[in-house]
């Protein structure tokens, strides 16, 4: 099944147009997304004030108060790249209601089609979200120690791009489970919870002690939120940075293959009902 690049350009272009219709809703939901961070700032301020008074210490697992808030702000950028709202559940729904049939008939590959559509979705999101993000980071610039070195920044950008691909292929693979189970909503909910806690979205995963920390570091989830933020803050540097990026890339390849394998075997047992 060979599709001309022009086809994907058209898909991208149409999806861009489609997405731009909802730019108002996009901008609002972006600003709203920063609201929980306000609570986090006050919570951590209270925690750091307590450890300073009670224990005379100013850091938690190597994070200062400012470092901690900078971390949370940076994870919002990671999440802007890696989160794929509605991707897995959309695939599962298409399988359930039979929409997936069109990919079996039309000469276009489903995973690539969805990737291009998601790319358009994200591009529009960045166009619209750039304003709110710039505003929030400008207001909270005091929490940062300045711009990182150019090579660190390059590593950060690379890890964000890989985070997008990892998020896409991971969720696409999950969506393919719909070929085997008709109802995947609860499974998605559990994944969302695990993602929230173990990607580093709720707290930096290096806070986890002992075996818990080791286990979470084995999962690919940390590359969706924790890793890019840690790169920016200079917590991962030198050989560790190269190794981290290589591991992230390996996970991308793993899930890119897994999604296609799952689709291949899923289609074999797929039976379309209705018209």
């Amino acid at each position: 099944m060979i599709t001309r690049p022009a086809t994907y350009w058209t898909v991208l272009f149409i999806s861009l147009q489609e997405r731009l219709v909802y730019r108002g809703e996009f901008a609002m939901s972006t600003l709203m997304r920063f609201l929980p961070i306000i609570t986090q700032i006050f919570l951590w301020q209270a925690i750091f004030s307590a450890i300073e008074v009670e224990r005379g210490s100013e850091t938690i697992a190597g994070y200062t108060f400012h470092g901690m808030i900078a971390y949370y702000l940076l994870t919002t950028i990671s999440r802007a790249f890696s989160s794929m709202p509605g991707l897995a559940s959309g695939i599962a729904r298409d399988i359930r209601d039979g929409t997936v049939k069109k990919f079996l008939i039309q000469p276009i590959d489903m995973v690539s089609f969805l990737l291009v559509r998601r790319l358009a979705h994200k591009l529009v999101y960045y166009m619209v979200a750039l304003g709110p993000f710039a505003l929030v980071f400008f207001l909270f610039r005091g929490f940062f120690e300045g711009w990182p070195e150019p090579h660190v920044f390059a590593g950060f950008v690379l890890s964000l791009l890989l985070a997008f691909l990892l998020g896409f292929f991971l969720e696409a693979t999950l969506g393919m489970i719909g070929f085997w189970f008709l109802e995947v909503t609860s499974l998605m909910f559990v994944y969302m919870l695990l993602n929230f806690f173990f990607s580093g979205h709720m707290f930096p995963i290096d806070l986890l002690p002992g075996i818990w920390g080791d286990l979470v570091r084995l999962l690919p989830l940390q590359y969706l939120a924790y890793f890019p933020a840690a790169v920016f803050l200079g917590r991962v540097s030198g050989p560790a940075l190269a190794a981290g990026l290589a591991t992230q890339f390996a996970w991308v390849v793993f899930f890119a293959v897994a999604a296609r394998v799952a689709f291949h075997f899923g289609v074999r047992r797929y039976s379309g009902f209705g018209g």
């Binding site: 919570l43 209270a46 004030s49 307590a50 450890i51 008074v53 009670e54 224990r55 938690i60 697992a61």
Partner: peptide
């Protein structure tokens, strides 16, 4: 990491 949320609260 901390004995309390907010010093003296």
């Amino acid at each position: 990491y901390t004995p309390m949320i907010g010093a003296g609260t």
